[in-house]
Amino acid sequence: MIWAGVLVASVSCYALKLAGLSLPQRWLQDPRVQSTVPLIPIALLASLVATQTFSTGHHLVLDVRAAALGVAVIAVVLRAPFLIVVVVAAATAALLRLL
């Protein structure tokens, strides 16, 4: 079942790319499409940050992941590279669990 989902997601993601290269330009130049599509990743990534930091299953949880996210925010504000942001967040959580 998982692999069926992976396959569907993969085909969808590839089809979207190919559509961008292949469809008539004016289809995707509709102002509603142009202004809405860039908002979707912003909203989804923000939701992922929130749900993966503050929940476990269906429950809201406040644990070391929140502190790790705080450190990640500082790293992002300082324009740290992607890998550094991820590593400092993981290291923060690991260190706090050791205490």
Partner: peptide
């Protein structure tokens, strides 16, 4: 804690 940080980045 790595995935939320990755999404944030």
């Amino acid at each position: 804690a790595a995935p939320p940080a990755a999404f944030l980045a």
